[in-house]
């Protein structure tokens, strides 16, 4: 339906604005002084990015081939991504980075938390509908996370 396509496109723009503002806040905050510390990212977070992207790819095939199995595979990968994000958080905490430790970690917890919440919403959507727009949203979340990981690398 045209309506829902328009709406999801608009939703993605709105979400984009939230993360654009957080990006600009991060750039400014990092430039303020010498207190910015690099986060100890491990292979885990990179692997996790790949999981989310794989989930997107699976979903795209599921949509084209109308394959229910692939659709559920994509959902499972999505759920796996969320659980792994928690592991990433646990690693960060055990490395001594909590929410208030450093602006870099404050931003990371906030941004990954927000993104995770949006992914959770996407999972709920994928579980209840086969609409094309749900896949748009899901791809949007994958691309967003790819961008955010690049951003965090660049902000190291």
């Amino acid at each position: 339906m045209q309506k829902s396509k328009t709406a999801v496109a608009l939703l993605l723009i709105a979400i984009g604005m939230v993360f654009a503002s957080l990006t600009s806040a991060m750039v400014v905050r990092r430039g303020l002084g010498g207190d910015w510390r690099a986060l100890p990212f491990t292979a885990l977070s990179l692997g996790n990015l790949l999981i989310l992207m794989a989930s997107s790819v699976a979903l795209e095939f599921a949509r084209r081939q109308k394959s229910s199995g692939l659709w559920w595979l994509s959902c499972c990968l999505g759920a796996l991504f969320l659980m792994m994000q928690l592991l990433v958080w646990r690693d960060l905490m055990s490395a001594g980075f909590n929410v208030a430790t450093n602006p870099s970690s404050s931003f990371f917890y906030l941004i990954s938390g927000l993104h995770g919440t949006l992914v959770l919403g996407g999972l709920a959507a994928l579980a209840t509908t086969r609409a094309m727009v749900a896949t748009w949203y899901w791809h949007g979340m994958s691309i967003l996370w790819m961008y955010l990981m690049l951003l965090f690398q660049w902000m190291q």
Binding site: I13, M17, V18, A20
Partner: peptide, 17 residues
Amino acid sequence: SLLAFGVLLAAGILLFM
């Protein structure tokens, strides 16, 4: 509204933190 309120939302969350 679509372009502006997301910015306020983000700022509000930062302030809350």
